[in-house]
Design a protein around this nucleic acid. Structure first.
Length: 106
DNA sequence: GTCGTGACAGTAG
DNA sequence: ACTACTGCCACGA
């Protein structure tokens, strides 16, 4: 993984660090919060620095948690009481962004 | 400058 | 619910 531009990365990490317990933002939300339209670049930052911030509070626009980290994310969600939506057979879940979406104040 | 890649997003079928 | 396709933009090569 390439090291992202530190300035862009710091802006991303600041936003993510400000997401309260039990809430979440989409990658696109984080990008918009720093005046960018590059959700994929946000993902690149998270892939590199994700272990330094509450990465499980950043999900896809659909509410699906981070790829390949669903189990670990689920434990955080249960601990924080994050509202989840489950498939009828209870095999897959996503964060209920309609309720849990965090909008940082300008 | 071009090109490929990506913890993405939106639309269409 | 799914796949496919397009748009997007930051980065490194």
């Amino acid at each position: 993984m390439p090291q992202p531009n530190p300035e862009f990365a710091e802006a991303v990490l600041d936003v993510v660090a400000g997401i309260p317990e039990g809430l979440a933002m989409a990658y696109g939300d984080v990008a918009a919060a720093i005046g960018s339209r590059a959700p994929r670049a946000v993902g690149a930052v998270m892939a590199y620095y994700g272990d330094e911030v509450p990465w499980w509070r950043v999900v896809r626009a659909s509410g699906h948690p981070v790829r390949d980290h669903e189990q670990q994310a689920l434990e955080y969600y249960r601990a924080e009481g994050t509202p989840l939506l489950w498939s009828p057979d209870r095999t897959v879940f996503r964060v209920n962004l309609r309720v849990a979406r965090y909008v940082p104040l300008s």
